[in-house]
């Protein structure tokens, strides 16, 4: 599924990365714990989180995640958006909750990243 379709499903606004909307997303992670994002470092290109600080971008950069959706209408700080531009990581905001966002994406075929799916 394209990031553009995900944007539509979750009623997102794009704060950065309109040029990345054709990104093909097959799996996603959802967490407010950055250590969990790093721990399950599978092939996911998308992160859903409610955490908006600058370390979210650095974590995604390290973990190879190309797009972030901030749930619960959480607006990231200006410095977070600035760093996302530097790292070229798309930033979207949805007014859905984490639970609803995950449910909508999962029921539309986006997979999660489990420990079993990661080559140890």
């Amino acid at each position: 599924m394209t990031l553009d379709k995900i944007k539509e499903l979750l009623n997102c606004r794009v704060l950065y990365g309109s040029h990345k909307l054709q990104l093909d997303v097959k799996s996603a992670k959802a967490s407010d714990l950055m250590s969990d994002v790093l721990r399950f470092s599978g092939p996911a290109k998308l992160l859903l989180t409610g955490l908006t600080n600058i370390q979210v971008i650095r974590t995604c950069d390290i973990a190879g995640i190309c797009a972030i959706i901030f749930v619960r209408d959480k607006i990231p700080t200006a410095e977070t958006i600035e760093l996302s531009k530097k790292c070229d990581i798309a930033v979207l905001v949805s007014n859905f909750s984490m639970f609803e966002s995950c449910g909508i994406l999962y029921s539309n075929g986006i997979k999660g990243v489990t420990i079993q799916s990661i080559k140890q």
């Binding site: 714990l33 950055m34 250590s35 969990d36 721990r39 140890q120």
Partner: peptide, 16 residues
Amino acid sequence: REMGFGAGMGLPNIKK
């Protein structure tokens, strides 16, 4: 914790 760290997974993650 507010920064998304400090969940006690750092050293185990490193070892893994």
